[in-house]
Write a protein that binds this DNA or RNA. Structure first.
Lengths: 195, 195
DNA sequence: CACCCTACCAAGCACTTGCTTGGTAGGGCT
DNA sequence: AGCCCTACCAAGCAAGTGCTTGGTAGGGTG
């Protein structure tokens, strides 16, 4: 046999991530994961402490990567509109490259947040809000964005719309993540009304 | 005792709907529902065939009501923009008045759709798409909406954004559903960019 | 009074769940 | 050859799951 030992663990995590994304964390059993990997459920515990620690590893490494990219945008010296543009594009790129992780976060963060070990999920939410509020405030003060909107609502609008696309976006489909981001930014910035 | 016999069933359904919305269908046990109602789990089966039939009843009656309202808008003689406006407002009103049902549909439709008895969920999705594509096509042809957008994408953005608000909107909070709809329609139609 | 009906209880069954335990195959290293 | 290490198997346990069964309290109706 000799499956590459260094990657077997990662392979199991990828399999688990796919199932968690498709069926939800609670609704995915360790036997589901083991079946998909061609082993028995008990054998998973040679690699991982628990089902929770699997999803923990999946989500935490994903979040670290994502917020690293946000930080790059925040600290860049582009103008407000360009930064908002960049932050939106990061989201759609992430849905393209890490769709499973995004789906798990979207669907199961509420449930997982109830456990101590997933406290960082709530922290990341706060952090995400700060990123966007900074960008939007910058946009309004620089005159790039209109002043007559509720900034809190605009934030929620963007956050929800951007991430919920994971429900229908499929990598390799007709529309690339660039296409989707282009269209979304057009709607967000200029609206769907004529003239 | 003598709890009003005609409403006891409905009361149990309301309790179940709240729990399904808060914790998800699969993650809500019949013991959770019974506890919240102050009875034993087995006693639920005097009123309902199964846990599935509870959520079935909750969702189907809700869907009937919702699509009845869409039909009214479609068959009205208002202009395209007014119809889109009305359809969006229906959604936020529904989130206000039937938040639990909307949440269940948003979170568990995928899972429930796997069972035969919930085939109407997929049908309703098709129907919803038709409603919106009709409205958007009408809007473009009448000149109310711009022609340079992917209509399929516009539909998805509207659908997702409108319903995902159930995640944060709370009836009786600072913002009424009218406020939210106003702001949302402004963003959707005219965008967030200045002048 | 006798009877019925609604709403419930008490107990438990069959199954699924996450996880544990003791053991094994087989490649690599000395 | 002897040994270790990684990856896995085989079996099963305790808790939790949806649901069933036989029974009961108590108000309403004839």
């Amino acid at each position: 046999m000799t499956t590459d030992t260094t990657s077997r663990r990662g392979e199991l995590l990828r399999i688990a991530a796919r199932l968690f994304a498709e069926k939800g964390f609670k609704n995915t059993t360790v036997r589901d994961i083991a079946d998909a990997a061609g082993i028995l459920s008990g054998s998973l515990y040679h690699h991982f402490d628990s089902k929770e620690s699997m999803v923990d590893e999946i989500l935490s490494s994903f979040q670290d990567e994502l917020f690293g990219r946000y930080d790059e945008v925040l600290s860049s010296d582009a103008d407000a509109r360009a930064k908002i543009d960049a932050a939106v594009r990061i989201s759609f790129e992430t849905i393209d490259s890490h769709g499973h992780e995004v789906a798990i976060f979207q669907n199961d963060a509420d449930y997982l947040g109830g456990f101590d070990r997933f406290g960082y999920l709530a922290e990341r939410n706060v952090q995400s809000r700060q990123v966007w509020m900074t960008l939007l405030t910058e946009g309004i003060e620089s005159g790039a964005l209109r002043r007559d909107l509720d900034i809190e609502l605009v934030y929620r609008f963007i956050r929800d719309t951007v991430w919920v696309a994971v429900r229908w976006y499929r990598p390799g489909g007709e529309l690339s993540h660039h296409d989707v981001a282009d269209q979304y930014l057009t709607i967000l910035l200029d609206g769907i009304a004529a003239g």
